[in-house]
Amino acid sequence: MEESKKLIITVLGHDRVGIIAGISNILARANVNILDISQTILQGFFTMVMVVDFSGSTVELAELKTLLGEKGRELELEISVHHEDIFKFMHRI
């Protein structure tokens, strides 16, 4: 089993201006490539799922998580980062 370098970033919270800009800015500075974004408003809540490629990242994963966590607190959003394999393992055989 090869370990891939894709991460899933999920964002939950109240919709406001600058969510995608704020997050993609952090990712761009870390040289993390966004492969896919989908967002919806679900029962009044903003939900966004991002698939990103972490292989060219200039920062460690832990630091990226810290940066996103800080941005999350600033924008009052719940941001989580998981490895894509978790989702594949859990939902696909």
Binding site: T10, V51, H82, E84, M90, H91
Partner: peptide, 14 residues
């Protein structure tokens, strides 16, 4: 889509 798991499934896991 470069990823085969649906958004609902991702949110369920999170």
């Amino acid at each position: 889509m470069p990823f085969s798991v649906s958004k609902d499934e991702i949110l369920e896991t999170v």
